[in-house]
């Protein structure tokens, strides 16, 4: 089950908060993390008030992906953007648990819950 290259959808919601939703689909590993990093960097340049990263379609993530999200969080704090992660699969959630990052990020159960926050 070798994965296809990472696909990333960026969606600007028409809400008052100016929310942007980034939805990667695939596996975020050492090979694909730079693509994810670039997508998040481009979105962050727009300084949205709220940035949701919907991880429900990410079947696998290791530390290069986690490091990319930590970078995004640091940039979000600098830009006063509220970063919310949503829909972590069990496998991705386990990596966050081991790295003790579940309390560092704001994490919602799914995309809709993240939008409603």
């Amino acid at each position: 089950m070798s994965p296809a290259p990472l696909d990333i959808r960026v969606e600007q919601l028409k809400d008052a908060a100016g929310t942007v939703v980034v939805t990667p689909s695939g596996e975020i590993d050492y090979s694909e993390a730079p693509v994810f990093r670039e997508a998040l960097r481009r979105v962050s340049e727009g300084r949205p008030a709220k940035l949701i990263v919907d991880l429900s379609r990410v079947a696998y993530m290791n530390t290069p992906g986690v490091a990319t999200l930590v970078e995004a969080l640091q940039l979000a704090k600098k830009n006063k953007t509220r970063l919310v992660l949503a829909g972590l699969t069990e496998r991705v959630s386990a990596v966050f648990d081991i790295a003790r990052l579940t309390r560092v990020f704001e994490i919602a159960p799914d995309r809709n819950a993240a939008i409603a926050r």
């Binding site: 930590v70 081991i98 790295a99």
Partner: peptide
């Protein structure tokens, strides 16, 4: 140190953990 929140340096920790 996991209390030091920054990108990188997690791989060895994960290997030893799992």
């Amino acid at each position: 140190d996991l209390a030091d929140i920054r990108p990188g340096g997690l791989g060895v920790h994960i290997i030893r953990e799992v």
